[in-house]
Nucleic acid binder design. Structure first.
Lengths: 337, 337
DNA sequence: TGTTTTCACGCAACCGGTTGCGTAGACTGT
DNA sequence: ACAGTCTACGCAACCGGTTGCGTGAAAACA
């Protein structure tokens, strides 16, 4: 395989000139560049990244860290979309990106440290669930750019993050249900431990407030994001004296359980009961009836993460910022037309 | 940051000795090793991978290639599981792995070539759908180990691949339905363009043959792996004079449509009608009723891919082989007990 | 035509490891 | 005590690029 010396020899120039051609330095005239490029093509030459990385001290690689434990298996397509978005940006820059799943490795900081110290990565994208003050401090000390997937929790430091606009999504869903004539809208899946559940809850409250509708705490169910919990919670809602006729679900899996309960109760969807859920993947299409959802664009989220990361890698002094990706409503069969 | 010279100086030895300690050479006595390791820890030293890669000509990195176009969005968790399996093996070896989605890049060979020539990857795991003779030839020429995810199609060359044992899975599903007393088992989703659909079909046929049941071609429906096709095809089955009372679905999405059709027809599941599908993710849990499935272990598949790849990377002369991952039945609510 | 500026490019050190070869000193055997 | 063997480790070249500095020649200027 050809190396830079072979190219230099073939072109009758020094390796410096070839290197400058590769890196498009202004001090090489265009015709010389053209000639050398020609020869590189002829020799089928590709620069050795390791050599390049060694001298420049850049790995041209970023890392996506995944925390498998934190995800329900079918929430994973959600990560797949993020990956796809990141990758699009990464390859634009001729970078590559590696995926590290911290479940596999023993300790978070050990992995990160290894990736960084061994010069395998220039920047990190990681879920907010993995960020604590110690990690942030450690990354800052090593001057490693990072972006959080999701609004950070339990962190006082100001960092850069990207999240779905959960609040407005739920707000829009609630408005929509009211607009379609549903009289009493419940909320399923207030889960104080999950920030995105809480934000969605806030959106629900917001909507009711602006419509001057009194909040009925019985209509707000605190439960986990599982089908089983959705089923039980919905049953509880339907057993109420002042039973609601619509619900906003904070989570996709939840809503499958909820729909089961509604059907068993003998109510017709969407005539007697309306439902809007959240959708990180496309499973809402599979339900019968198909589920109306707040659509979240995880591909865009991935792209934003990567963009923000590259900004940090390229500029030293960018300021930390939080970005919210806006959502859209996708009305399918669980809401009146 | 400390480098190997700093360590050598601190230990009063040459860099050679430190390097040999790192690589655990036998020519360094244990006490010396211990002392040097101590110092490395104290200095918080991690070898620079780029330097290492440059001399050893190994990148300690493998690549997973994904073809987004080929996948339905909710089939992606399936890829996620594979990733996870690969990763487990990769980190055992202190390798890392990069993910390249060829949709993003312009041409398959260009990407592969770049990854290889630039010394960014030592081996490749890629879906069978991306393998054609030209690609195989190119990889062989560069002596790059590779493993195909899925039994290869349209290739005469013998290569190494890993696939799900689709045939036996469908066979077992068919046996199970018959065993449970269903009289007439149909097959949904013969799709000649997809090898795994075809294999599942073969399994179905196998089972009927060994039970000496005559094949009724009306009970075999050729359709795509979509919910809509599942719905239409099941409707067609139910409209038959000699209507079946059970079905094996070649695909998960299909079965959601099929169930919808069965319900609309007024049949009780599983009493009047039994169904077994395939499950690459966990969406079968979400359906109402939950779907009995042939379980496929994509995590294991990923692990096998990585293991076979590392065998090739480490040994020069391994022989090409195909490995089938066995499946298991997970009987949920669409089959009688 | 002589002087200064600019341009194009080469020299050589350097990035941080690895490794073949060589050797000093310890150890073994007689 | 001496030759031969073995052990532990250093020397220095090398991997394939990048880049600060320097220089000869051409261009611009007076």
């Amino acid at each position: 395989m050809a190396n830079i010396k072979d190219v230099a020899k073939a072109a009758g120039v020094s390796t410096s000139t070839v290197s400058r051609t590769i890196n498009n330095s202004k001090s090489i005239p265009d015709d010389t560049k053209a000639r050398i490029n020609e020869i590189m093509k002829k020799l089928n030459y590709t620069p050795n990244q390791n050599a390049k990385s060694l001298t420049t001290n850049k790995s041209y690689t970023i890392t996506l860290i995944v925390d498998v434990d934190d995800e329900k298996s079918f929430q994973n397509p959600f990560f797949y979309e993020i990956m796809h978005g990141i990758e699009k940006q990464v390859y634009k820059k001729e970078y590559s990106f590696i995926v590290a799943n911290l479940k596999t490795m023993m300790k978070k900081l050990t992995v990160l440290d290894w990736l960084i110290k061994s010069k395998r990565t220039e920047g990190v994208i990681l879920p907010s669930s993995m960020l604590d003050s110690i990690t942030v401090e450690s990354l800052r000390k090593d001057k490693i750019p990072f972006v959080s997937i999701g609004e950070p929790i339990h962190i006082k430091e100001s960092i850069t993050w990207v999240d779905i606009d959960n609040k407005r999504g739920a707000e829009a869903a609630t408005f929509y249900l009211l607009e379609k004539g549903y009289k009493s809208v419940a909320f399923l899946g207030l889960n104080q431990t999950k920030l995105f559940n809480r934000r969605r809850y806030e959106g629900y409250l917001n909507a009711l407030h602006s419509e001057n509708i009194e909040i009925d705490s019985k209509l707000i169910i605190d439960c986990n994001n599982t089908k089983a919990d959705g089923y039980q919670s919905m049953k509880a809602l339907l057993a109420l004296e002042k039973c609601p006729d619509a619900v906003v679900c904070a989570d996709g899996e939840l809503s499958f359980g909820a729909i089961k309960a509604i059907k068993e109760h003998g109510l017709a969807i969407p005539e007697d009961f309306g439902l809007i859920s959240y959708d990180e993947s496309k499973i809402a299409e599979l339900s019968y009836p198909t589920i109306s959802t707040v659509n979240v664009d995880m591909f865009e989220m991935g792209q934003q993460c990567a963009k923000l990361l590259f900004e940090q890698i390229e500029n030293q002094n960018t300021r930390d910022q939080g970005i919210l990706i806006s959502t859209s409503l996708n009305c399918r069969e669980t809401t009146k037309n």
